[in-house]
Write a protein that binds this DNA or RNA. Structure first.
Lengths: 358, 358
DNA sequence: GATCCGCCGGACAACGTTGTCTGTGGCCGA
DNA sequence: TCGGCCACAGACAACGTTGTCCGGCGGATC
């Protein structure tokens, strides 16, 4: 296809292969006129090498474009550290995952460690496949937002020396450190916020009940409602809609709730897509200044909307940072018993949650 | 050193070490009572192995939790493929990067390839450092959203067999395939859209002029204004504000423009943060239904706002997918001359860009 | 029953690198 | 001047895996 350039330098390799191979220490040694081992010493910055030789070797390395093969190095070295960790999230494209990703990356990068990431799309089978792929590459550690519901298969990996930390959901059984949001308590806090603004008919709009986090958030809602029963808060099943997974579904659910006879005066939404759908429905029906909303999860543009959207913001960066910190501690040999770490969410008041009851 | 466990499982290893080491093929072979090579054949699914032995070997692998060491395998194998590619973006946490990331990951995952990603934060030095880190890990290919302005240092890597594809910005000089947005043409299209709604005084709110993409977008703005000069479009320098990098700066700039004497009747914003700031300023001053806006880059919640925000949406997923496709073609040996591929942006009309001139 | 062929398992070397050990040269002190 | 010691280079093996080669065994055919 591409004829051999008969001009200058790499003319001799008349092979049609797309590229010559990477130079090895052997070639560097030959060019520099030293032994292979000396090159190794230069690469590893052993201080006892003759400075003149160091210069010669460095020059040879630059000329050949030599870069050490980390894999071969790890293989030979005792510790077998690849300086790479794995990160399995729901979807690297979604804001929560991306924020966690960034925080993990920052923590790792400071330690010269790179991150191999992958999306699971809530597929348990994919979780196992990706764990295998990462283990095959001998990552030093693994941060997982679980998609599966049985993590015993990871015990073997941990025993084999791969540290594992879970994020956002607890592993079952608890086979490793976990970093989670205070779903139940934060939800209760959000609902109490609405109650303190005078609301008594507060709707709950939630995700699929099969998700543990969704269950916890619903539990928090009920906690707060129950606490305020004496003050007239009603636990009306007609105010609870679950199984919402899209903006459209949430929009429709809110529209229906508001047009009904005993409409709620406030909404608590359990998740960002649901919040967006609810806000959209309120704006479309012109009731955004009349019906209060508090959402779980921050949403983009929340402060630009009118009114601003009051939310319980998960601290995704802090969650990622803490997960990385725990992971690196394990990798460094920490053998303390595994435990769950709870990162509190923050209530951000922007207006929609402070609308008083009529 | 470590005596043969005289009982069954690994109960004998009463060592306090954090973990025993990973089993190797040798240990699997010993447990299964076959040769090391036979285990290798089973792992590689060579068809000529006695089924009875396959079963025995598989059982031994499961019992020990054996997983092949891909690094060692690559080392020995001729091709030296790590089945890993590198992705360097501006920030894995921002929506554009995250969408590109996801698209690349999807393309790679179908081919059993994992993605090592890292954020560059527009730091040229960091770009070089991360490229080195990825090369040291012998990634098969590299997708880069450039932060530096001289990419000749990558030629050596390409010659050494690492495929490279650039995204969002052209490398200088053009040392590899690139996938870019049609910044200039799309901007012109957006401004023409405003002109066709009757606007003649159209402001340009842009990012730092040092960014090539920002320059192209500004050029597109000027193209469209110049075309319409006969129709009375003014190229007023007072309508151009550049160097905006944050929501706050854009908000302030818009507020000032609108309060001036010859205020624009429409805004063209060159980037999502700027668009958000502009929208925020319009809403705060109550002019969102009077002043038209077209923004480059989609913004979240654009359809929830009133009016919806008209934008030129970059097709980040398509850009990522195409970049991955080109990369894998190069990795498979494609030696066609490098060229730039332009992915068109889409004009999404949501209301703010269709407000007629007063 | 003998020969040949084919099929499958095992020994060996090598991928690129580094730890260990040995060997050599130079320098300093007595 | 000589001995000893230290500083540094080089040979060798090994990390975990796989390609190559060879040898042995079983079955089939005459």
């Amino acid at each position: 296809m591409r004829t051999v350039p008969d001009s200058e330098t790499p003319a001799a390799d008349g092979k049609r292969g797309p590229a010559r191979e990477r130079p090895t220490m052997k070639e560097v040694a030959a060019l520099a006129g030293v032994s292979l081992k000396t090159v190794s010493r230069v690469v590893n910055e052993v201080p006892t090498v003759d400075p003149a030789l160091v210069t010669k070797v460095r020059a040879a390395m630059d000329r050949l474009g030599f870069r050490p093969n980390l894999a071969a190095s790890n293989l030979r070295r005792g510790d077998g550290r690849t300086h790479t960790v794995g990160l399995l999230v729901e979807d690297v494209g979604n804001p929560f995952s991306a924020a966690v990703h960034r925080a993990v990356e920052d923590f790792a990068a400071q330690r010269e460690v790179l991150v191999l990431s992958s999306s699971l799309d809530e597929d348990p089978e994919r979780e196992r496949r990706m764990v295998r792929a990462l283990v095959d590459r001998r990552v030093d550690g693994l941060i997982i937002v679980p998609a599966s519901s049985d993590h015993r298969y990871l015990v073997a990996e941990q025993e084999a020396g791969t540290a594992v930390v879970f994020v956002d959901r607890l592993p079952t059984p608890l086979v490793g450190d976990a970093v989670v949001t205070d779903n139940r308590e934060a939800s209760a806090q959000g609902v109490r916020h609405l109650i303190s603004a005078g609301h008594r008919r507060i709707a709950y709009l939630g995700d699929t009940e099969s998700l543990p986090t969704a269950r916890d958030r619903y539990a928090g809602y009920r906690d707060a409602i129950r606490e305020a029963a004496a003050r007239g808060c009603v636990a009306d099943p007609g105010l609870v809609v679950q199984g919402l997974r899209t903006v459209e579904a949430a929009d429709a659910a809110v529209s229906e709730l508001l047009s009904g006879p005993d409409a709620p005066t406030a909404l608590f939404t359990s998740q960002n897509l649901v919040t967006i759908g609810a806000v959209q429905a309120l704006h479309r029906t012109g009731s955004q200044h009349r019906v209060a909303v508090v959402g779980f999860d921050d949403i983009p543009m929340a402060q630009v909307l009118d009114p601003g959207v009051t939310v319980l913001a998960q601290q995704a960066s802090e969650i990622g940072r803490l997960a990385a910190q725990l992971l690196f501690a394990r990798m460094a040999g920490d053998t303390a018993p595994a435990r769950a770490h709870v990162v509190p969410s923050r209530l951000i008041q922007r207006g929609s949650g402070e609308i008083p009851a009529a």
